[in-house]
Design a protein around this nucleic acid. Sequence first.
DNA 1: CCTACGATCTGCT
DNA 2: GCAGATCGTAGGG
Length: 203
Amino acid sequence: MVKQLLDRRLPRSFYERDSVTEVARNLVGTLLCTYKDDELTVGRITETEAYSGRNDKACHANNNLRTPRTEAMYGPPGHAYVYLCYGIHHLFNVVTNRKGLADAVLIRSIEPVHGVRIIANRRNVKRVEPNTVNGPGKLTRALGIDLNDNRTDLTGEELWISEDRSVFIGDIDTSKRIGVDYSGEDAHKLWRFTQDGNKWLSR
DNA sequence: CCTACGATCTGCT
DNA sequence: GCAGATCGTAGGG
């Protein structure tokens, strides 16, 4: 199981494209995997959001803001950017485009496909339901992702994303990003991508 | 040093 | 529907 998923890992070139919205769109339907302490958990990505390092006030790296926190976004593509939100939640992004440009895709929701018992334990629930994993802070907890994963290479063997051909690109909806009202006109960008009709979404 | 706040979630009303 | 949690980050003095 682990080997099959590792064999299908998305290559660096997937993340390296210059359109962060295209990467965000194409990540819907892929499999987000963690293999830690001999425990494999996998979730199909159902919802993503694109953030651009240039000309996007919703992005942490907007206006070339370069700080210890945002440094991961300025790093090479195909690496993780994990940060702490509201002092409680870990939010997971994948860095895209070329090094130095700070484009990234936030993963907002998943549909569990493997390791359901482990996910239930990590979330402290008996049954795994949509509201167990349908949010950026919930899914990181469910998959065991935290600040230790910041800057992790996603072509490695602990945290990665695998290809899967189960979602057609035409079945992906676009909408406004969540929780970025502070960013003025950039809040209207249709940079949220969801799998049409999937019940494992954040809203 | 000090302060304000956030790409959210939960529990309570 | 709403307040509180909780702490690293950013920005200003």
